[in-house]
Amino acid sequence: MLLNKINPYVVISLLSLVVFAADGQTLRDPTLPSASYQAVTITDTAESLVLSSVINGASSFAVINNKIMKVGDRVQGVRIVAIGKSQVSLSDGRKLQLFQSVTER
């Protein structure tokens, strides 16, 4: 009598959930890197300086390696000599340049 009251669509749905749940354990996430993927670690970050932005005004500031710096500050032992519109000059002769925006022409 109980079988007559059970909707066959509910039974089919429950059985398909059980089958798909069992198969879901064997499926691999396609967004994960392959098993042969090896991450590359950069160990020489002490020498790399990245200029993120420049703020010009009465006082000029530059964001280098995610730190706000001004003229006279030292970054990795090198003094900042000048901060221009899109570059920073260092005491060792290096110049850090901002990347131009993709929309600029």
Score class of each variant (00 low, 15 high):
V40E: 07
A21G: 15
L96E: 03
L15G: 04
V19L: 03
A82L: 05
T103M: 13
Q38F: 10
A82H: 10
Q97I: 11
A82P: 00
A22K: 05
V19D: 00
S48N: 09
S89L: 09
L96H: 04
V18F: 09
K95W: 07
I80R: 05
M69Y: 00
M1I: 13
R28E: 09
L49V: 08
S86A: 15
K5D: 11
R94D: 04
A35V: 12
T45D: 15
T26Y: 15
A82Q: 03
I64A: 03
D23Y: 13
F99Q: 12
D73P: 01
S91P: 04
T45N: 14
M69E: 07
D73Q: 05
S13F: 15
L90F: 13
F20S: 15
E47H: 12
R74V: 08
D92Y: 00
S60E: 10
T31G: 03
L14T: 13
D92I: 05
V75E: 08
L90Y: 07
I6F: 15
V75C: 01
T43R: 10
A46M: 00
V50A: 08
F20H: 12
L27N: 08
S60H: 15
S60L: 13
P30A: 06
A39C: 01
Q38E: 03
S36A: 14
L49C: 06
V54H: 03
S16F: 15
R28K: 14
V71F: 01
L51T: 00
S60N: 15
F20I: 12
V81T: 07
R94F: 03
V54G: 02
L51G: 05
I42L: 02
T43N: 08
L49S: 11
R105M: 11
L15E: 02
A82K: 03
I80S: 01
S52W: 00
S60W: 12
L90T: 10
P8T: 04
A22F: 06
N4K: 13
I80L: 06
S13T: 14
F99N: 14
R94I: 06
Q100I: 00
K67H: 10
L49T: 08
N66F: 08
S59F: 08
S36Y: 08
I55N: 09
V10E: 01
A82D: 06
L14Q: 09
A21M: 09
